Amino acid sequence: MSRSISRLLALAILFALASTSDALAHCFVGARFFPATLAIDDPCVADELSMPTVSWSRTADMPPATEWDFSGEISKRITENFGVSIGETWTQIRQPDGMVTAGFQDLETTFQYQLLKDRSHEFALLAGVIVDWGNTGAVNSGLGTSYSLVTPTLYFGKGFGDLPDTLSWVRPFALTGQVGYQMPTSSFDFTQAAFIPQQAVYGASLQYSLPYLKSEVVDLQLPDFFNHLIPIVEASFSTPVANNFGNPYTTTGTVNPGVIWVGGYFQIGLEAVIPINRESGSGVGVLGQLHLYLDDMFPATVGQPLFGGSQATPRKLTF
């Protein structure tokens, strides 16, 4: 399964690099462009490819191990408002004594439906269900599980472009977030002799769009490189809420300050990964991603929904 997905992702990259079509931004709500965020998801269905996403961190063990994660995800709209994503992550964990554990995590699929796009208020609302499929990862290495995880999730995005001109400096700000409830398909893990908790999983991002500042507020005559930047702070958390017998109800998560550079066909993001407590990890890690806008690259083919594709010209991203 994972080999087939890797071939599909690699093929999509080759097509993307060969494309010469006009650049079309894939997640516009009115004048607001929401970039694909690294730690949480953006509030739009789209045709896109994240590959690779690479992270390095230290685990919460004492002494800590070092962990590398390499992942890829491809998203495809089935209709104008309904999309499906498939993602896979390969993980390597190196213990202080040199022992290495490596393998694939469970395959993840996400089903999403666009509930709302309010152009005048730059507001987007998206509903989804994330499924991590049990027995599709390296269960014997502890990187996969014998049970599945089902997470109904609500995503939102809100730009502040509808504020009055007296607050023009605030208008490039935007807030995105997601809230989900993660439910395992089994309540007890017999291999670990432990209860499997249900968890609230949630996060948010605060971003300041310099492309929006230039196009919608004021052109400060900055060098072109800076007009492509979106400074961002993301946060992602998980809190056990049920079936956590014998364990503390400790919230874990990270805060990720960083920046996204947005181009016509792709974006590059880089963030620091700061654990919020000792249970979340040791020290500061790093997260980077190359994200390709397939619906911008192939607006008449790959970038169209499988059913009921629109012939209208999408909004262009300008700098």
Rank of each mutant, 00 (worst) to 15 (best):
G264W: 01
L220V: 05
C27G: 12
A204L: 14
T20S: 13
L206F: 08
S209Q: 05
F34C: 02
L163Q: 05
V84P: 03
A31I: 08
I78T: 08
R77N: 14
N243F: 03
S209Y: 07
P211M: 03
M297Q: 03
E234Y: 07
Y147W: 12
L49A: 06
V170Q: 05
Q289N: 10
F226L: 15
L154W: 04
L220A: 09
G258Y: 00
G285R: 00
T91F: 01
H121T: 15
E108I: 13
K316W: 09
G103N: 01
V255K: 04
T110G: 03
V259S: 04
S168L: 05
D61Y: 09
L213R: 06
A36K: 13
L11Y: 13
A16K: 03
N244Y: 06
F190W: 10
N227S: 10
P305T: 04
S236V: 13
M1H: 12
I40D: 02
P231H: 05
G83L: 02
D22S: 15
P197L: 03
Q95S: 15
Q267S: 09
G159W: 02
P172G: 08
V241H: 03
S187F: 09
T89Q: 09
F188Q: 06
S75E: 14
S57Y: 07
A193R: 15
D61F: 11
L167I: 08
G134L: 00
H121M: 14
N81F: 11
A312N: 12
T109W: 01
P35W: 03
A65R: 01
D219A: 04
S282R: 06
L294R: 04
G203K: 00
H291V: 07
P197N: 03
T59P: 06
I13M: 12
R32I: 11
N243H: 05
T252G: 10
L163A: 08
P43M: 00
S55R: 01
G283V: 09
I78E: 05
V179A: 14
G128H: 02
W56M: 13
G30S: 05
Q289T: 10
T136R: 00
R315C: 09
G98T: 11
I230K: 06
L317K: 14
V100F: 07
E67H: 06
P314E: 04
K117G: 11
Q182L: 07
T239R: 05
P257N: 07
L206T: 06
V170S: 10
A194Y: 04
P240I: 06
E234T: 08
N244C: 08
A235R: 02
E73M: 13
A312Q: 13
A300T: 15
P184E: 02
L149H: 10
E67R: 15
M62W: 07
A16G: 13
P184I: 03
R171I: 07
V100G: 07
L115I: 10
F190T: 13
R171C: 04
I5V: 13
L220H: 02
I230C: 10
T79I: 06
I93R: 12
H26D: 15
S187N: 12
S4L: 15
G203P: 02
P197Y: 01
L9C: 11
I40F: 01
L126H: 02
Y265N: 11
G134W: 00
Q92L: 09
S85H: 00
A25R: 10
V262A: 02
F15G: 15
Q207I: 10
F82I: 04
G303T: 02
I5C: 07
K117P: 06
V241K: 02
E279S: 15
P172S: 09
